[in-house]
């Protein structure tokens, strides 16, 4: 067995989990289990949302360390699920490392929903949340447009590799603007319900609660990183929607 191969493969597995939105403890535990499965005790792993550090000691006591940066994270539960399955299999069967890598590549190539399907998903999120927060049916229909606008703007900004802070400001501003215009021309009734429903698309649900979970679970640095992240997202959304509100109030003088 080759220690270099082991640490490379384990880091790849951990990276796939981290980059697709798994929790910190899942990343650390999965890698630790892979180390143990290949009878390497005392491997050390430190994962934070932006980076993974892993170290193992070879039989003659030489440490090998690998650092893997994680620049972009998304939420893809399908891949987390499949990598988790792979982990269980690795611990059970201890396959060859090239088999694990081939499997990882296969998981990485799994299909995602198309752009059009995602736009529709965003619209449906906006529609359902507007009704959920007590909007009328016509509010919900306006919200569908807002949801689609938010997705299109966010997608375009991603193509230009804009940072997520700026992307969120623009997307939330555009969504709120559409909602306010719709209400001004009497297509919708409650601009607040439309905006809240549509902006739920940008609120990365768990981000607000996950930092507390990380903090209380003892992953202090990970918790702080996620807190900063969710704080930035919330601020960006507020700035965008706030700008749209201020502009329309200045023009129409509500």
């Amino acid at each position: 067995m080759n220690d270099n191969d082991l640490i490379n493969t384990a880091t790849e597995v951990g990276y796939m989990l981290l980059a697709n939105g798994a929790e910190i403890y899942r990343v650390e535990e999965s890698m630790q289990r892979i180390f143990r499965a290949y009878s390497v005790e005392g491997g050390e792993i430190f994962a934070i949302p932006t980076c993974i550090y892993a170290t193992v000691s070879t039989a003659d006591g030489r440490p090998i360390t690998k650092i893997k940066r994680c620049h972009a994270r998304c939420t893809n539960m399908d891949k987390v699920e499949k990598v988790n399955d792979l982990c269980r299999r690795v611990c059970r069967e201890r396959p060859d490392f090239c088999v694990i890598r081939a499997e990882l590549r296969r998981i990485d190539a799994r299909p995602t929903y198309t752009f059009l399907e995602q736009v529709m998903a965003f619209s449906l999120v906006a529609f359902a949340f507007t009704l959920f927060y007590g909007g009328t049916f016509s509010d919900a229909v306006c919200s569908v447009v807002c949801g689609a606008v938010i997705k299109v703007v966010a997608h375009q900004m991603d193509r230009f590799h804009a940072n997520s802070f700026f992307t969120n400001i623009l997307a939330s501003g555009a969504g709120a603007l559409v909602a306010l215009v719709a209400v001004h021309y009497n297509f919708g009734l409650n601009s607040d319900k439309i905006i809240i429903g549509a902006l739920m698309n940008l609120v990365p649900g768990i981000a607000i609660t996950s930092f507390m979970r990380d903090l209380i679970a003892g992953d202090l640095i990970a918790g702080l990183i996620r807190f900063t992240e969710s704080f930035l997202v919330a601020t960006a959304i507020a700035i965008g929607a706030g700008a749209a509100l201020t502009v329309t109030r200045a023009i129409w003088g509500v």
Binding site: G21, A22, E23, N84, Y133, I196, G205, A234, G242
Partner: peptide, 28 residues
């Protein structure tokens, strides 16, 4: 399956989206 996905999705209706919005509005 990992518990992550179930928690992530099921918690969404609880996220205080309204609270964040009204906080922002009062600020403005």
């Amino acid at each position: 399956e990992p518990v992550t996905g179930y928690l992530l999705v099921a918690l969404l209706p609880m996220v205080p989206g309204g609270g964040i919005y009204y906080t922002m509005e009062y600020c403005i």
